[in-house]
Every structure is written in C-alpha cells, then in structure tokens.
Amino acid sequence: MAHAETHDPNTPLEYRSEIGRLNILGFWIFLGAEIALFATLFATYMVLTPRIADGPALGELFEVKSLLIQTFLLLTSSFTCGLAVHEMRRHNVKGLITWMVVTLGLGLGFLYFEIQEFLHFIHEGANIGTSAAWSGFFVLVGTHGAHVTFGIFWVTMVLIQVAKRGLTPATSAKVFITSLYWHFLDVVWIFIFTAVYLMGMVMHHG
C-alpha cells in the first residue's frame, strides 16, 4: 500500500493521508448504495400508500406542526454540522467540538419529536401491522430514524477520539466522513418530507 503523505499546507487535513483519501472516496460510494437502499424503501412506500385496509389514511394523521419542528431541527443540524467541518479546516478543535455537540443536541431533539409522533400515530390506531400503507410508512421513516440514532453514537465516538488525540489526518478524516453521513440523512429527510408528508396531506385533502 502506497503511503505517501501530502504536505501541501493548503490541503485540508482529512485529505493528507492516503488512507484518509481512500476512506472518504469509499464512503462516498457507500452513500451511493444508501441512495439505492432508500430508493427501494420509497418505491415500496409509494406503491403501498393507497392500500390502507381498515386503518386510517396516512394524510389523515399527519400534523404540520410536528413535521415542521422535526424538519427544522434536522435542517439546522445539517447546517451546524457544516460549520463544525468549517471550524475543523481552520484547525479550531474547540469550534469543531462545540458545533458537533450542537449538532448532536439537534439530532436528539429530532429523535424525540419523531418518537413522540410515532407514539401519537400508534395511539390513534396506526401501527406497523395496521395496513400495508402504514407498514411502508413506519419502515421508511423508521429506517431514517435508525440511521440518525446510529449517527449520534458514531459522531460521539469520533468526538471522543478527537478530544483524546487532537486533529490528525486520521481523526479529521473520520470527522469529515461522519459529516457526510449526517448531511446525507438530511437529504433523505427532504425526500421523506416531500414524498411522505406533503404528498400524503395533498392526497388526503386534495
């Protein structure tokens, strides 16, 4: 394995080691696979939406307020995550950790409201076994939620490593990769926001 280190001072730290560069490229490709994974869940959801059996229609239970809270929490967390990487590139460890902790807080907030919403739906008589449509809803949105949960654990662990070891080519590549993951979850949410919630409400009322 070639192990050439690049010492151009203008190169961001995470790109300076061969392993860092390989890992970042590999993770981009993994995100391509994730796109195919979520596309399959979206396809399933779209096909099954009208099939509500005896249960409530999807749009009937969606609420704008809860949706907006979740959306803004996640959008903002994506923004603060970007600021964290911005600080990392200025070699500001404190700024990096601060913005990442804010990101984690927003992520936890998102999860809190998502779980509240799920509990509300279950209370209203819609769970994973109610109908094909609700199965599709819970598994699509739940898979995204599981990704966010995993992301929170992952980012936390990477932050511990940054705190212990400081910013090195290895740790900064890890931070950068977790940031890609986090932004990607926001991209997925945009499509959940549109294809699940907005479309569900349009179909129900329109």
């Binding site: 096909v47 099939r51 509500i52 059996a53 994973i128 076994g129 094909a132 199965s135 599709g136 598994v139």
Partner: peptide
C-alpha cells in the same frame, strides 16, 4: 416476525 403487511394477503399487502 413483526406482523407488517408488505407482501401479505392481509392488510392489503401486495
């Protein structure tokens, strides 16, 4: 295992 209705005959699965 968990009683969802993606491909089942019940619950209007497909």
């Amino acid at each position: 295992l968990f009683g969802s209705h993606f491909f089942t005959l019940q619950g209007e699965g497909m």
